[in-house]
Design a protein around this nucleic acid. Sequence first.
RNA 1: GCUCAGAUGGUGGAACUGGUAGACACGCAGGACUUAAAAUCCUGUGCCCUCAACAGGCGUGCGGGUUCGAUUCCCGCUCUGAGUACCA
Length: 959
Amino acid sequence: MDYQFKDIEQKWQQFWADKQTFKAENHTTKPKYYVLDMFPYPSGAGLHVGHPLGYIASDIFARYKRLKGFNVLHPMGYDSFGLPAEQYAIQTGQHPSVTTEDNIATYRRQLDQIGFSFDWSREVRTSSPDYYKWTQWIFMQLFNSWYNKSADKAESIDELVKHFETSGSQGINAVSDEDILTFTADEWKALPDSRQQEELLKYRLTYLRESTVNWCPALGTVLANDEVKDGFSERGGFPVEQKKMMQWSMRITAYAERLLQGLDTIDWPEPLKEMQRNWIGKSVGASVKFPIESPLSFGEGRVESASIEVFTTRVDTIFGVTLVVLAPEHELVAALTTPEQKAGIDAYIAQTKKKSELDRMADTKTVSGAFTGSYVLNPLNGERIPVWIADYVLAGYGTGAVMAVPSGDQRDYLFAKHFNLPIIPILDSQNIDTEADPTKEGKYINSGFANGLEYKEATAAIIAKLEAVGAGKAKVNFRMRDAIFGRQRYWGEPVPVYFKDGLPYLISEADLPLLLPEIDKYLPTESGEPPLGRATGWAYHASPKESVSEEELKAPSPLERAGGEAYPYELSTMPGWAGSSWYWYRYMDAHNNNEFASKEAIEYWKDVDLYIGGSEHATGHLLYSRFWNKFLKDIGKVTEEEPFKKLINQGMIQGRSNFVYRLIDEQGRGTNTFVSHGLIKDYKTSPLHVDVNIVENEVLNLDKFKKFRSEFENAEFILENGKYICGVEVEKMSKSKFNVVNPDDIIERYGADTLRMYEMFLGPLEQSKPWNTNGIEGVFKFLRKFWRLFHNDAWELNVSNEAPTKAELKSLHKIIRKVEEDIERFSFNTSVSSFMIAVNELTELKCNKRAILQEMVIVLSPYAPHICEELWTLLGNPAGTLSYAAYPKFNPAYLVEDDFAYPISINGKTKMNLSIPLSLEAKEVEQFVLANADVQRYLDGKTPKKIIVVKGRIVNMVV
RNA sequence: GCUCAGAUGGUGGAACUGGUAGACACGCAGGACUUAAAAUCCUGUGCCCUCAACAGGCGUGCGGGUUCGAUUCCCGCUCUGAGUACCA
């Protein structure tokens, strides 16, 4: 039979599903290998041809590892909480769970068609209560933990309480809020419970605090920093503003240093590690306090001596400070402003507020600022330093205040020049005639006791002095902020917290999962509360739940509704990244009702050996996952410090749009005539997107085009060489650009094996590239050619048991080694070429030997599993055994050559090839070459000055 | 601005450690089969000079350098893509 890919693919997909061929065991003697894909959000649009790229690569790897004798865990699931389903619910009233269910069904059908070897028995969905029960459980563990800096790990909050009870706050070195109290054990014990809880909240790893958040009014929710791009929401592109709100946060900053250090231990792409390093943004420097010259009046009769604290990475330049600059939002600005300067300061603040964040970023050239009228004193020499405000200082970084050193920092330099402030050079090698010079070279001048020292000594001496006078200390600052952990939305995990006297308390573990309640519509309440505020009876009942009366349930506000023993639940839900921050553990033991995964399962699978996904998750998912993993390790629930040992970013598949060119008439109106791309310079035309699915190799299918839209029914064409050639542009793949290619269509026409191989053939996995079906015929032809090796001209199976020849064995072993090398270094595109070469060679040799073909089937099977399963059974092997066959062993003996065709070059330019026995040593090769008549002809009677012979590589003669 | 990645025929790409640049595939051209088309098969195909062959010249973004020899290493530059952005 001819190669009937449709029948073959359906047959084997059914077989794998029925027999659970790819079900992984948690107990075997085989070594484990965990291959993971970033699970998708099941969107309504379904998969396009770009989505499976990474899945195909990981599937090839997983199948290859099975052949190599590993027990492979290769699961798939869905990140099924998220905004699009909820937006759809708002528009249609359709429950997000229904939409999600439908979308998952589409995804599953599409994934199944591609022939992935996923273990579907372990599927997870983040929106399923069985799953989010454990997301909530992890939240509770975070709530019950604090970060002990001395032990450099998270510890139970009970330990902290014990310490408070015995020793008070003394000796605690924690990552916490800044306004923590100092107290003795007795003082602690005397505090009422509510005050104790309030204090503990400042230590918990997940905590509630008033913070400035990215508020997106259009989406009605707050967004994390990584969900905001240039002042607009990443999803939907709506404007985002800053707003103060009571919010759940995760103390990820506690792990900043470990998140940074861990990067050196994992095999990830360097650019991605770099992005995480930048995001964490560690800078080493010092904090310095500049005492304010005169006591400040805070109004209401409160007068205090205060100081301004700054962070600097160049504390060595402290003698060059000629002004201190505060962010306009800095808390001391009002108190520092003298009556004479008030008008100016107020005007400046008003002006700053008017500027959007975008303007403020775009406008980095103009220098602006205002003088407060107050002075601080340099802690080392007592110099009076004016205090200014300027919007180039950011409230959110460091302390929101800088010591400005115009001689060493360009922004400070411009500022000082603009406002005519002094510029003091502090190094003898500094040149500050036209711009600041940030050098560290030379010896210090104008620097008091540091004069004559060099950079390192000066820094050390100045820090020592600052510490001695209590005005500063060495400090490490991180750019990364704690992550906001709440969304004012419906379709997410409920936070397992209720409120009593305004303070949060965890519900009992026995009450997990806290199920998402039904609500009438998916919008905020009239009073602006999140959608969960609409739920009736959304309250925790400490005593038996039945104690709430119907009337209480109908009460208008949660507080009143709660009544006696019931307390209102948190109304926000968890953000999108909650469920994806630990899902790889659930796959290890997906149906466990007692734990998120059993200790045995975690100790067996440990971590993900290979993780494939897009680089867009660099500072979101991948950072949060590492954070939660480290936390779970600290509390002894998992074994590894890092969750993903090796990570590969597959490139993005871009759309490749095709255009037709509509002729414009004299009046500038569009006509119904279209000009082929090669001729448009001779006409006046306007480009128009045309569906890429009716274009092949840039040639437009005219009949299909006429049916594309009714207005084109009578279209006329100006052709070149009888064809209409379309224009091409690379853009994002999107419906509006008519450049979306659906894998279903490709599979319908060529089959899944062709799709799989073609996606790999397109180019290196990690490179972004436009989708282009121009070469797909070649891959399809290759599979047919492979099929034909097993068949005669009448398409009857025709395989011989004869012993293979030397040439046949050579072809086979070349490919055995090549595919092994390529897969290990994730170079899947080069394997596809090599398969083509091997099949071309075997076709040339008319090889139909079982000994060769059977091995070929195994080697090709990770790439094209369906056709290989079919051929494997046609060869007489039991159905389904191919997936666990042994990868053929490479034997170098078959590749040994007697001769090598040496390229003979003169002055580095290759002139000819000469076959020379490989047994000859360099000197003998030289004689052999010189004895050759053709070589002599090239030498034209001259004697080479020098002859370079690299054995088995090249001969080069210098004339 | 800074950081990172990249630039090879008409196209996608290959060349793994400095050693025959352009493998493999698409496209294109010519041919076979066919009444014809599709499908299939065969041949050619980096550019220039040449009727053609022989031979030759040029050629991996640009300009230099190291080397017997550079797509590969070094210096400088241009362009493209990604990330980041007044980070003190």
